[in-house]
Design a protein around this nucleic acid. Structure first.
Lengths: 254, 254
DNA sequence: ACCTGAACACCGTTCAAGT
DNA sequence: ACCTGAACACCGTTCAAGT
């Protein structure tokens, strides 16, 4: 009962495709690529079944042969983004550097397609690229020597933090122009001008706030998480029994 | 040029309100409360100007006198959620416990209104409740002894982590029933059944994954962040010059 | 087997007209 | 000053009919 199994027609079973009126031969891949292009070029509001049909040169309703509904299309987009992000990544064997690189790539990949990321970062796709990513990240942690329960806990915190910040920062990049400018202005126009007697802590740090809040906090948050994980690993290695078992094991599989 | 300044009619200047056909007297507060109720009772799709008008007993177009557009209404909802979350919070003076409590409250507050949170957690409102929250959190950090640049950096990582996880977890709670069940099923039906020869790391940790992935990773991620911050503070206190200035200062202001 | 086109039940927002 | 109602330009999705 996975999402992949629910697709209207399994890709392999599909044949005898007829070109549309404009001569295009539809496919899941073509639709996902076109959707990403629409999002990129015209923003999140442009991803409608009707405009996607227009961009493909097909009747909008034809898309329902490839995706159950817009949500199903979204999951396919999410998995394609994961795939692109990790396509050319290779482990170095230094776990902390590897996780840092993976986290920053996930974040940067989302910001490269903010409109798509904000719609899809949240979702568990159960599709091929996501599965490879899970296998890779857990492999890095187990290869580093984290006992299995710690490896899974840290995997979960790491990947959800990466996806959560990716969505957060993508959302701000994907905001309509007016809203985006209004938010940037709030820090300078409002926070930087609060009087010290009513808001002493904001007033004392206003120049730091204005400088900091325009940037993503993800690199900081990532480093804090990795620091704490490293400390945890040192503890686990000093006292191997404490964490409740789990075998040491193979390295990353990719 | 803040969002508050852009409101169609400043609340104070509004007078001589006429009841609607059904006898209701509209106000910004009533509209926000009704919007939260709609979201809570009927999900994110229910928040449309038309249904909100219906629920209020007013013509949908009347709402445009109170909010510039739906985005402006969303910012008001976001600020109301922040206000509710912190309404009865008090500092204990133990910075780490205070921040942990604040983080968990922000997260729990979002999950109590998942449909509202997923729409609004991202946004900088510049409104009154948000400003109080910023002042409070920075106050906790400065009161703990973090130098100003560290206080701001950790404030930013802390609050964005809380909001990002709040939105991530709210999104999964707010998912339409079918999609939500499909995602839960993916871990049991797909990840737990991958063969060890193709996916050794997932296979070795599958039982941990199934147990862990159904819960939020936020408490773990928060503790990792606070651990690392505590370590940073210990360093700063051992070597006060290293971090580049910033005075020690007052406690939390609330 | 797959694509089309009409139809249905909705949207957000604007603006002239009412009171 | 504020609310109403019609209008405009859109949506996602379904389904009978075509090829």
């Amino acid at each position: 009962m996975t999402s992949a199994d629910d697709r209207v027609v399994p890709a392999a079973a599909r044949r005898r495709r007829r070109p549309t009126k404009t001569g295009v031969v539809l496919s899941e891949e073509l639709i996902v690529q076109t959707a990403l292009r629409l999002l990129r070029e015209h923003g999140a509001d442009a991803l409608t079944v009707r405009r996607l049909g227009l961009a493909l040169g097909a009747d909008p309703s034809a898309l329902y042969r490839y995706f159950r509904d817009t949500d199903d299309l979204l999951l396919a987009i999410a998995d394609e983004l994961i795939g692109r992000t990790l396509r050319d990544w290779r482990a170095t064997g230094v776990w902390r550097a590897d996780l840092r690189d993976l986290g920053l790539r996930i974040h940067a990949g989302a910001l490269a397609h903010p409109q798509a990321a904000v719609l899809s970062s949240y979702r568990v796709t159960g599709r091929v690229h996501e599965i490879e990513a899970v296998e890779t990240i857990i492999g890095v942690l187990r290869g580093a020597g984290f006992p299995d329960p710690d490896a899974v806990r840290i995997y979960h915190a790491f990947v959800d933090q990466a996806l959560a910040f990716a969505a957060l920062d993508a959302a701000s990049v994907a905001l309509p122009r007016a809203a985006r400018e209004a938010e940037a202005g709030v820090w300078r126009a409002m926070y930087a001008r609060l009087p010290a007697d009513s808001h002493p802590n904001i007033a004392a740090t206003a120049h730091h706030l204005v400088r900091d809040m325009g940037r993503s906090a993800y690199p900081s948050a990532l480093d804090l998480l990795l620091s704490a994980a490293a400390a945890r690993l040192a503890e686990a290695e000093a006292d191997p029994g404490a964490s409740g078992g789990g075998s040491r094991s193979p390295g990353p599989s990719h």
